[in-house]
Design a protein around this nucleic acid. Structure first.
Lengths: 137, 137
DNA sequence: TTGAGCACTTGCAAAATGCAAGCAATCAGG
DNA sequence: CCTGATTGCTTGCATTTTGCAAGTGCTCAA
């Protein structure tokens, strides 16, 4: 579980985090698990933005190594695996919420809202709790 | 100033944000401006992580286009420019703070703290205000 | 006028990404 | 039991992005 220090890691906490999810896809995978309750490879692959399969596989490995997600065999299906957010992963909920709030203030595109923002403004603590639980919408 | 929709933008607020700063460097540039009060190209280039000059130039252009930073001639020096965070950029302070708090919980490296976390836990509203002001430490 | 500083740009190699196809292990239906 | 569909990937290859080094143009102080 001991992570080797990346060449970018300066000791700054922001850099530490970006080392783990500072790329195009990682946070979207975490969002799909936290906000949409995605649990399987297939569900993640079918996400809104269309991640390609090799990238998804690679990101899941990295996130597992970083202790953000766990991977277990589905007890009900021999060909499926179940991915779960760890505590470390669930604790990213406030980060996702702040990002979404910021976008809500500045994204003026007409179809920019997908319900997530409405949920946050209606009940932020409840939304955060539901994200941590990985509840399906 | 109207931004064309990226091929990744699904309408999700998280995706909108990642479209702007979902890469290795953009948030570090914003951090250098918000936390360290960096204002010039040279100061940003000398950041903790060692961004390369071509990437910095490209990111500054993108951030300017996205309305996160402004670029103006330094009134006191004909060869310098001054970059400033806009309101939109300063409003990323809560995102940076949540990221730093998360890292603080999970980065166990001995030299992981650079003072920023201590400031947040000593006085979060004050730290956020100082970030928005772009005050130098 | 000259040399140093600042803010970049350019060229090129290396790495990451995206797309399509392939593949192994289940499992459900006939 | 055989067969085809489903699931969770891996592989190959073209394209894009990144990283490093070197170079350029403008400014200013001596």
């Amino acid at each position: 579980m001991t992570q080797s220090r990346s060449k970018y890691d300066s000791g700054c906490p922001v850099a530490y985090a970006l080392d783990i999810f500072g790329d195009r896809w990682s946070l979207l995978v975490i969002r799909d698990m936290a906000v949409k309750g995605a649990r399987t490879y297939g569900e993640l692959l079918a996400g809104w933005e269309g991640i390609s399969t090799n990238i998804l596989a690679q990101r899941l490995k990295q996130l597992e190594q970083a202790g953000i997600v766990t991977k277990e065999k589905d007890p009900d299906s021999g060909r499926s695996f179940v991915y779960e957010l760890t505590q470390k992963g669930r604790d990213l909920a406030p980060v996702l919420i702040e990002i979404a709030l910021w976008s809500g203030r500045y994204n003026t595109a007409p179809d920019a809202m997908t319900g997530f923002l409405d949920k946050i403004s209606a009940d932020r603590p409840g939304t955060e709790a539901r994200m941590r639980a990985g509840e399906r919408p």
